[in-house]
Design a protein around this nucleic acid. Sequence first.
DNA 1: GTGCGTAAATTACTTTATGTAACCGAGTAT
DNA 2: ATACTCGGTTACATAAAGTAATTTACGCAC
Lengths: 111, 111
Amino acid sequence: MAADLTQLCPRFEKAIGLLSKRWTTLIIYRLLDGPRRFVDIETSLSNLSGKVLSERLKELEEAGVVLRTVYPEKPVRIEYSLTEMGRDLAPLMDDIQGWATRWIKIEQEQV
Amino acid sequence: MAADLTQLCPRFEKAIGLLSKRWTTLIIYRLLDGPRRFVDIETSLSNLSGKVLSERLKELEEAGVVLRTVYPEKPVRIEYSLTEMGRDLAPLMDDIQGWATRWIKIEQEQV
DNA sequence: GTGCGTAAATTACTTTATGTAACCGAGTAT
DNA sequence: ATACTCGGTTACATAAAGTAATTTACGCAC
């Protein structure tokens, strides 16, 4: 009967809980290119609303993946960047990119 | 002004759309150990409801990641397994596991 | 055959998450 | 003063997920 009592590694579960929320991976992917401002992220990911972006950035900051830096210039500038923990996700992103390239088919627009 | 017009690779985006849905990764992770029946997956992932499992398995089958096999035995047996495309996600899972092990802290139960 | 149980779902209903759009406060430009 | 940008927040509407009961098709005990 013992179906499958293999416990999931709690760290793995927690990582998945963080990373697999909607938009999270795409936000991180954007930040791999370098620090970005709120609006830049918002406008570069279509359908991502400021509301959710704000939530995600808070979660990621809380988790230690993203760093929020305030530059006290004339009009204050706020930049979001990846911490070391965040940059360490780069190989993972490459894996997804590789897998996608190998397996994902895109339906062609009519030629 | 040109904020960041870098387009996301559509394959990458599609892959993320598939993989980052709630439960999807955990279901695939479970199937990496070998074929499983519906109830086994359901009971091994707490809080995953039959409803959503059913949806996810259909999506994954549709995407070519999961194979649904019907064994016409006395009480019919249905097994879900990974296709080659699905098994090719193993390195990604390993990377997530590695990253989680390196960075994710678990709050300790009181000793 | 009646009642009971299991596997694999599906349906109806509730709760949570996300999307949309308007609004705010600080700063700057006209 | 007016309008515009940035970095948000708020209020409301829709979509997705959770909960629980029901369904269909079996087998099993009686």
